[in-house]
């Protein structure tokens, strides 16, 4: 199913530490249209908690948060 998600923006958050992965997602969410999807790749394990928390607080949606080959891959959908 997730293969059907069209990625509108790729974000490389590798090497960034708290609070930057979440801040970068927040700074870039406005660059995609409502309904658009950002794919972000981070290496900070804390992002697994922070990016979903950011989405909950801002009313956006995390479609996927997965550890893949030691990296953390997020699909974030702009809801509003």
């Amino acid at each position: 199913m997730s293969e059907e998600n069209k990625i509108d923006l790729e974000l490389d958050l590798k090497g960034l530490l708290c609070p930057l992965p979440m801040v970068k997602v927040s700074q870039n969410i406005g660059k995609v249209e409502v309904g658009g999807i950002i794919r972000a790749v981070a290496t900070d394990p804390g992002a697994m908690a922070d990016i979903p928390a950011w989405a909950k607080s801002t009313g956006n949606e995390v479609l996927q948060a997965e550890k893949v080959d030691g990296q953390f891959v997020f699909l974030v959908k702009r809801v509003k």
Binding site: C18, P19, M22, V23, V25, S26, Q27, D50, A53, W54, S57, T58
Partner: peptide, 11 residues
């Protein structure tokens, strides 16, 4: 500053 930037990012 980490808390402040985090809170600002969270709207």
């Amino acid at each position: 500053f980490i808390i402040a930037t985090g809170a600002a990012a969270m709207g």
